[in-house]
């Protein structure tokens, strides 16, 4: 009996025990921020000995859903304001969200742009397989806004659940054009920038959350992201400065 109880406790401990070292803050970041935030986290750890953040990058709707259902994250960085507003409305934000970067849409194509894609109007071409994010994903919402403004009717082969999914399917050659961000440029892919007139500006915001395990580290990381050093990293990943 005692052995069984010990076993049960051990199981629960393994399940619930801290999987991160103490004081590591869990950062929920939109998928488009993934690479940049991994680098920021690494630099942050160097600059703040003893402090550490762990980045969890995923499709924004999925992150919002996890926060709604009580995920113990310390910081949320969103690719759009609407998603952040939803988190604020849920009462999870510990502070007013702060804008920290901007981003612009871009068309991802195969290396060398074999289909000669020039701009948004090419998305209406019937010979191209176009891929957008679903309308519940920020990148999908931005793309649809831009298309509507340019009065282009594009048919997406699929409503992808995150901008990463779009990137990887263009990389696999399954789609000819994917609407993603300029920050998604990859050496093995071609990138067609959109003119300012037909582009939209994505505003990225972040906020420390209530109910996390390491609010102090989260605040330090937030300060690091908006600091000069943080801006440099974001700029290197082709993000624009805060508006």
């Amino acid at each position: 009996m005692r052995r069984l109880a010990t076993l049960l406790c051990a199981t629960l401990f393994v399940g619930c025990g801290p999987s991160r070292p103490p004081r590591a803050a869990l950062v929920f970041a939109s998928a488009s921020l993934g690479d940049a935030f991994e680098e920021l986290a690494a630099e942050f750890a160097r600059a703040h000995p003893g402090e550490r953040v762990e980045v969890h990058a995923a499709g924004t709707p999925q992150l919002v859903l996890q926060l709604r259902e009580g995920a113990r994250a310390d910081l949320f960085a969103s690719a759009d304001e609407a998603s952040m507003e939803r988190v604020v409305a849920l009462g999870r934000a510990a502070e007013a969200p702060r804008a920290f970067a901007t981003n612009r849409l871009a068309l991802l194509v195969a290396a060398g742009n074999p289909e000669h894609v020039r701009g948004l109007s090419d998305l209406a071409r019937a010979d191209l397989r176009v891929l957008l994010c679903g309308p519940e994903v920020p990148a999908g919402r931005y793309a649809r806004a831009a298309l509507a403004r340019a009065d282009v009717v594009a048919r997406s082969a699929s409503d992808e659940p995150s901008v990463r999914a779009v990137v990887s399917k263009v990389a696999l050659g399954e789609a000819d054009v994917g609407v993603a961000y300029v920050t998604d440029a990859r050496p093995e892919l071609g990138l067609v920038e959109l003119g300012a007139a037909e582009n939209v500006v994505a505003r990225y915001t972040l906020a420390v959350l209530d109910g996390g395990d390491a609010p102090a580290t989260a605040a330090d990381f937030r300060d690091f992201v908006v600091s000069e050093r943080g801006r440099e990293v974001l700029a290197r990943h082709r993000f624009g400065g805060a508006p």
Binding site: P61, L65, E136, S156, A157, S158, D159, E160, K169
Partner: peptide, 18 residues
């Protein structure tokens, strides 16, 4: 992929609507 009426089956619709 996930496109309404073509490839968005029930489980995918659940995921998209979640």
């Amino acid at each position: 992929g996930s496109l309404r009426g073509e490839t968005r089956t029930l489980p995918l619709a659940v995921y998209a609507a979640l």
